[in-house]
Design a binder for these strands. Structure first.
Length: 270
DNA sequence: CTTATCCCCTGCCGGC
DNA sequence: TGCCGGCAGGGGATAA
């Protein structure tokens, strides 16, 4: 489920938990996660090592360890890292445990099991195909208006699908793209190449502004996603079909673009 | 190259 | 209560 804002918050939590903290054991028996790698190799690479840094690239988490290895993780739809007591019962969907020398446990929980993880020599991270193909990070290197114009020029693809294409820009997902287009008053199904210069300029300004807002807004809640108990919907449109548009009061509609649920205001984004 | 569609996997929710 | 379709904040493979 997570997009850039949630992954950024996950990175900040992991940084607190791991940097300067020694891992004693790496435990997993999840063949889908290992994809041919060996749990023993993961353990050998990380056990006994302190975390040195935690980075984020688009929606990927990178945890660098002393000894020269990096744990790369993608949370996909349902992944999250939890810090638990070392003797707590494993939560449903637990796929990987990092035991720490203070007795606690970092658990990679992922109920749908779509998440991915790698343990690589740190220099090899750059050539991991999943990372190498990413476009510029929308928080660290937000596109200028001319850069966005170059990306959209001549494209018949909807602007929403383009914003979610990680090879062009990275970090925006289904919710971010929809919320940014609402703020910019642009219809999500508009062919990217047909946007006006003024619309492009608004988008360029709103992308980093929205991400900073979302990180701040979501940092005030536990890392709980919509649909879970106690979840708080901080979004303007997402998940609010039929509710009044916060700007004009018109009923929010839902459609499907690029296979993803898409919420929009037919009046503001007409 | 571009774009759309299907698929991976599991759980929850609403309707009948 | 039980079953079933729809839905889920990801991205990769494949096809046209």
């Amino acid at each position: 489920m997570p997009e850039l804002p949630e992954v950024e918050l996950a990175a900040r939590r992991l940084r607190e938990w791991l940097v300067g903290c020694r891992v004693t054991h790496v435990e997993t028996d999840d063949a889908l996660l290992l994809r041919g790698a060996s749990a023993a190799d993961w353990h050998a690479a990380l056990a006994g090592r302190c975390g040195r840094a935690v980075r984020r690239r688009a929606k990927y988490l990178l945890a660098d360890f002393e000894g020269g290895h990096t744990l790369v993780a993608h949370l996909r739809m349902t992944g999250r890292f939890l810090r638990e007591s070392g003797d707590a019962a494993p939560p449903p969907g637990a796929r990987l445990f990092l035991r720490l020398e203070d007795g606690s446990r970092l658990t990679f929980q992922d109920r749908r099991r779509l998440g991915q993880a790698w343990v690589l020599p740190t220099p090899a991270v750059e050539s991991l195909p999943q990372l190498a193909s990413l476009g510029p990070d929308t928080l660290e290197e937000p596109p200028s208006a001319p850069a966005l114009m170059a990306l959209t020029c001549g494209r018949r693809q909807s602007i929403k699908a383009l914003l979610m294409d990680q090879r062009r820009l990275s970090g925006l997902g289904n919710i971010c793209a929809g919320e940014i287009l609402f703020r910019a008053r642009i219809a999500p199904e508009m062919p990217a190449g047909q946007l006006s210069e003024a619309e492009i300029a608004r988008l360029a300004e709103l992308i980093p502004e929205y991400l900073r807002w979302a990180i701040e807004a979501q940092s005030r809640h536990d890392p709980v996603y919509l649909g879970e108990r106690g979840a708080v919907n901080v979004f303007s449109l997402y998940g609010r079909r039929g509710e009044p548009c916060p700007a004009c009061g018109e009923a929010i509609r839902r459609t499907v673009i690029a296979g993803r649920g898409t919420y929009y205001c037919p009046r503001c984004q007409g």
